[in-house]
Nucleic acid binder design. Structure first.
Lengths: 210, 210
DNA sequence: AAAAAAAGAATGATCGTTCATTCTTCTGCT
DNA sequence: AGCAGAAGAATGAACGATCATTCTTTTTTT
């Protein structure tokens, strides 16, 4: 019993240290990129010695992977919360989550990090695999929203156009994420009007020429 | 006279060497990223000594900037060629240029490089400035297409919806670029059907519910 | 006192960059 | 034309800095 409590307390401490390191690493990665951020800088940011990091992580690449995993998980959570809303609410929700660009927030995807990890995936097979699994899950979840009946909170799109719509939806959101990261000062009203123009089209069953 | 000829020949040689270095650097940057690619690797790829590179470029960061400048120029060229076509031709043209992912081609934007430089722009102010100028030019050119009258090869959109449409267009293309880079094996037919569904909507004056 | 946690110096490798040196090419003179 | 010598091009070793990682030592906790 005593041992179990002790182990649990130690585990809590270990977990807290790991989170501290990850928070510092994320900040450094956002500021300098995966490769340009050094272990010394991460250690300074986490206010601990460089050597200590290796008690909690085997290597720098393990930290990178942990950060990526965390970001993917956060994004999936955000996605899960999103679909249960009307189209206008969705517009606001998307803009809000596009705007979260803080370097330290582990609960939202940072734009620079998104690009950093996408670029890294073209070189590191392990990261590529993780991203591919994530992408497949996201697109199939979006496809689910679109094809589910309206009575069940979906949009009732016919099966044959769902995959293309899901792809367009994802590409549009990601494209906006990239754009906001490249132009942080871009007019939010412009983005809102663009979104509220295109979202109904993507979510409506058909749009023939009138 | 003799001197001018001599100078010109020497200049040609210098230019050729610079291009050789840039080609090697681009390949290395695509394969490893800006920071993980070393000058030694670039020199090896260019089949010259590391020291020689510094005869033609002041620093590694100067090479990075030259690469970025070249990619932006190539992209603008591609854009200029694109608008003079029908909507169906445009679909094909977009898919084609999205697909060019070769590491050595200086005439098209590489997807990994696109993300690498976008991420780098969030840290390096000089790169950020270059990208911002480029982005502004691209969006205003797209806006030009959209607002120009049909008789003049445009799409005759009313002024008030042009900026939002231009933004959507750019985000969609960039989102697709990112997606193809992350999922190189993605079904091209899916992309084509998605594009041919959405492009007419983006290029048509209005799309009210029927 | 024993064990775990943390620090920080040390390691070898590699980084971008420079430098002294050699090789190549071209020029002007005979 | 053919050779001496200047100029430019190229090399590869060397530099100090910094990298990720390991190791020894000190501090803290139990």
């Amino acid at each position: 019993m005593t041992e179990r409590v002790h182990t649990s307390k130690a585990d809590d401490r270990i977990e807290a240290q790991r989170q501290r390191i990850l928070a510092a690493a994320q900040k450094c990665f956002v500021e300098h990129g995966f490769h340009a951020a050094s272990m010394a800088t991460i250690a300074d940011t986490a206010q601990m010695s460089a050597g200590l990091i290796y008690r909690y992580f085997k290597s720098k690449s393990e930290i990178i992977q942990a950060i990526i995993g965390r970001q993917l998980e956060a994004t999936r959570d955000k996605l899960g919360q999103m679909h249960a809303s009307t189209v206008t609410d969705m517009t606001a929700g998307i803009i809000e989550s596009l705007d979260e660009q803080g370097p330290c927030d582990e609960h939202s995807m940072n734009g620079a990090l998104f690009m950093e990890m996408s670029a890294e995936a073209t070189r590191d097979p392990q990261i590529a695999t993780a991203l591919r699994a994530f992408d497949a899950a996201v697109r199939s979840e979006v496809a689910n929203w679109l094809s589910r009946r309206k009575e069940q909170g979906g949009y009732g799109l016919p099966q044959d156009i769902v995959p293309a719509r899901a792809l367009l939806f994802v590409c549009l959101i990601e494209g906006l994420k990239v754009r906001i990261t490249r132009e942080p000062g871009i007019d939010r009203a412009l983005i809102e009007s663009a979104l509220s123009e295109i979202l109904p089209v993507l979510l409506e069953p058909a749009h023939k020429d009138c």
